[in-house]
Structure formats: C-alpha cells, structure tokens
C-alpha cells in the first residue's frame, strides 16, 4: 500500500510566464458606407481595396446616402461638403455661398488626380476586379425609389439588413 504524499510547495516562486499568442490576422472585413460625400466615400473604398491588396476578403454595404456612391447618375458628381465640415479651412458663412461646394469639390478632385488616386467609378471597378463584394441596401433603395437598373453593374446584389448580418459572419464590421 502506498501513501500519497503531497509535493512540497516550492519555497521560491517565479513569476508566471504569460504566453501571448500571436494575434490572429484579420480574415475578412465588411464595411457599411452610409454617407455619399466625397470625403466619406473614399475612406471606405480605399480601406476595402487595401484589404484586398493584402489578401483580406472585403464586403461593402452601401446604405442611405452611401447609395450615391454606386448610383450611376450620382457617383461622378460626389461633393465635398463646405458647410458643417469643421475640417474645411474656410468659414462656414463663406462655404454656404453659391458655387463654393462645386469649386471645393473640383479642387479636391484635381488634387486627387495629381496624386493618382482613381476616380470613384474606377475605384468601384478595381474593387470588383479584386473580388470584393458590393451590396446595396434594400430599404434605402426603396426609400430613394431606386432599382438595380440605377446602380453600377459591379453590384453583387441587394441585401436586407438581416441578409447583410448573415453575409458578414466572421468578419470585422466597420461603419462609415
């Protein structure tokens, strides 16, 4: 018969080694684009494209004013807001003058062209070629009286909000 003897407690304690595993790489991102101004469209489009360039899956869900980015008649005329935009280096009173917004938007587009940033239409083509999925929001489409015929051909489909959440399973979700 053997008697179990408890191991004596070690007298000197070393601090526990905490092993931090390498962080999991991001596998997929789903971006919700809800604004249609130039300065809100580009961040989403460029972030999604950058994700694809580094091998991350990307889904884009265009809702509310974000639909402008994929609406044929609107996407070449997105504006930079000059009123209610605290980053705009001109007084709001001046920003409200007729033609100010068009002028600012023109300047911004020229600057982006110089930096070889593609226009919105080309960004959508690049995203589609990269395998990113572009979706329009069903409810916002109904609200604005749009059909799929009004949208660019790169759209993979029109989703309800529930469809979107199902589709976004396992991805990081970003709202813009």
């Amino acid at each position: 018969m053997t008697t179990a003897v408890a191991e004596p407690e070690p007298t000197t304690t070393t601090p526990p080694q905490i092993e931090t595993p390498a962080p999991e790489p991001i596998r997929a991102v789903s971006l919700i684009l809800s604004k249609g101004s130039l300065d809100m469209a580009y961040p989403g489009l460029i972030m999604a494209n950058g994700a694809r360039m580094t091998g991350i899956e990307a889904n884009l869900f265009f809702t509310f004013w974000g639909l402008d980015i994929i609406t044929e008649k609107r996407l070449d005329h997105l504006h930079t807001p000059t009123v209610g935009n605290p980053s705009m280096p001109i007084p709001t009173m001046l920003g409200g003058l007729p033609g100010m917004e068009a002028l600012t938007s023109k300047f911004m587009k020229k600057r982006m062209d110089e930096l070889e940033i593609p226009p919105v239409r080309e960004m959508l083509e690049i995203l589609s070629d990269s395998g990113a999925q572009l979706y329009a929001c069903r409810m916002a489409m109904d609200m604005f009286g749009l059909t799929e015929k009004n949208l660019v051909p790169q759209i993979s489909g029109v989703l309800t909000v529930m469809d979107f959440w199902d589709m976004a399973a396992g991805s990081q979700v970003i709202f813009i």
Partner: peptide, 30 residues
Amino acid sequence: NMKELYQLFPKGPGKLAARVSGLPKPQGCI
C-alpha cells in the same frame, strides 16, 4: 490586368508581387 493579378497572387497581390520580385513592400495605398 487587375483581375489577373488577383488570380496570379490570390493571397494579396499588393505585397506578394513585390516580395516575389525581391523588392520592398510598396508604400502606396492604391
């Protein structure tokens, strides 16, 4: 073209094309 680049380097053509070519990681975002 872009579509083919993604077929040739499916795990991220933005960095893989440069890496296989023995070049540094590109600094541009497009």
